[in-house]
């Protein structure tokens, strides 16, 4: 029979090297290995420094995962600046990492929702969906009371449609009144308002 069973774990396996790796190594493979090994809060600073210089997408992902694994507000804070970069894959990587550590990302959300950059505020709305917890609906309701940009309100309204209950109805109505000349936003708000009106409050368990 051609099916074989090797006698030891590493036979025919091409096992990876075991020497210590450095985040500053010239080799992407070593930087990848170093990022994967960095899972202690003491590594946050060096991971942040490495992330700022890293050009290899695969290693960047490993650094994001390491920071998500550490999962402290400090490790989340290292990722926040990458929500504003032009490169879409890095931005997405940053968002995914923040979503992966909702408790750690949560303290940053109120600040992100009033960020001077409207694009960041839109991404923050999306983060609230996964990381906002019980405060999420309240934060987004407060936001749409004053948010000057219709497209940011639209992002918040979309998320409210998923996480809010009937208590969000009055805020939604006031938001629609602030944008009388934006038929898309008014339509979106109507759809969501109808939905949350039927929504029962989330059970606690």
């Amino acid at each position: 029979m051609p099916l074989i069973r090797s006698k030891c774990d590493n036979a025919a396996a091409g096992v990876l090297r075991e020497e210590p790796a450095s985040l500053a190594s010239a080799s992407p493979d070593e930087r990848w290995a170093a990022a994967r090994a960095a899972c202690d809060p003491a590594c946050i600073s060096s991971l942040g420094d490495a992330l700022a210089l890293e050009l290899d997408a695969r290693v960047r992902q490993a650094i994001f995962t390491a920071l998500a694994r550490i999962a402290t507000p400090e490790s989340a804070g290292v990722i926040l600046p990458y929500m504003r970069v032009d490169d879409a894959s890095t931005r997405t990587g940053a968002l995914d990492a923040l979503r992966a550590m909702p408790e750690a990302a949560r303290p940053h959300l109120p600040g992100l929702l009033v960020d001077p950059d409207a694009d960041v505020r839109i991404l923050a709305c999306d983060l609230v969906r996964d990381a906002g917890g019980a405060d999420g609906p309240r934060w987004l309701c407060a936001m749409i009371e004053t948010e000057p940009q219709a497209n940011v309100c639209a992002a918040a309204v979309e998320v409210l449609g998923e996480i809010a209950d009937a208590a969000a109805g009055p805020c939604l109505s006031r938001c629609a009144e602030r944008f009388p000349d934006d038929p898309f936003l008014r339509f979106a708000i109507k759809v969501v308002a109808d939905r949350v009106r039927a929504e029962t409050p989330a059970p606690r368990g």
Binding site: V15, L16, T65, R69
Partner: peptide, 26 residues
């Protein structure tokens, strides 16, 4: 996982769906 070495094909079916985001990334 590392001591198992390198594979040509891995079947990992209906497992990752049970993990949280961080575990799934790892």
């Amino acid at each position: 996982t590392r001591p198992h070495g390198l594979f040509d094909v891995i079947f990992c079916r209906n497992l990752l769906i049970y993990f949280d985001d961080t575990s799934r990334r790892i």
